[in-house]
Amino acid sequence: MRAGAFRAEAPVAPILSVRGLTKRYGGRVGCEDVGFDLYPGEVMGIVGESGSGKSTLLNCLAGHLRPDAGEVLFDLGKDGMRDTLALSEPERRRLARTDWAFVHQNPRDGLRMTVSAGGNVGERLMAVGARNYGAIRASALDWLGRVEIAADRIDDRPAAFSGGMQQRLQIARNLVTGPRLVFMDEPTGGLDVSVQARLLDLLRGLVRDMGLSAVIVTHDLAVVRLLAHRLMVMKGGRVVETGLTDQVLDDPQHGYTQLLVSSVLQV
């Protein structure tokens, strides 16, 4: 009955399927036996305190770290589900430039600070084969507008931007090629709360309008409440609880999640 009732909306196939993902640092556990399915248009938040393994997991998923065991299956369209860990290096790089995007906590890690704002956005387009200067510049302008950066800043370098503007530019650079899956590592970390709110609203709109799937690592429960459809709570490298975001936050089933939720300062 369940499957029938939702045929009209929910696509049946996941875009990302993770199985038994494990990463150890010598004898220490980075993350252990993590598995989940992510569906198109779905935003999953990974929460947990520092050292819980959430960043290790994200970097294993995105191909920045080589896990010791497990599979990261991604829907490559005509080629079907492929284990991205088994792709050749050129194939993986192509994926990182086209279907995937990675938004770093520190925009300096995701931007080229000596290249103009327009160049930062255009560079990613050129990496996937765009050559017409006019079209690239028009596309860069369009994306600067979407992330609320004034058109007259297109030739400025990101070093002259505020932290919030740099983060929005990093998002424009990442999304200009129309990726299907975005990894985000503390995307609102280090920003003023007012800047955070604007960024959250922007991300929500982009996720909805582009139908993006995303995996977001953060320790900020307020951010996941507004951005993530579902949550994965990690402790000591293991997943201790998963579920619908508001359910996990309002009716946590695991002792650690209860502690995490009750530790948030009320304003």
Binding site: M1, R2, A5, A10, R230, G243, L244, D246, Q247
Partner: peptide, 26 residues
């Protein structure tokens, strides 16, 4: 928003008590 310990909660054909997050969101 709260997880039922047991029982069936059927809304429009979906058992909320046993549904996946994306089904509940839909």
């Amino acid at each position: 928003n709260y997880l039922a310990a047991s029982g069936r909660i059927v809304v429009g054909g979906l058992d909320v008590a046993a549904a996946e997050p994306r089904e509940i969101l839909a």
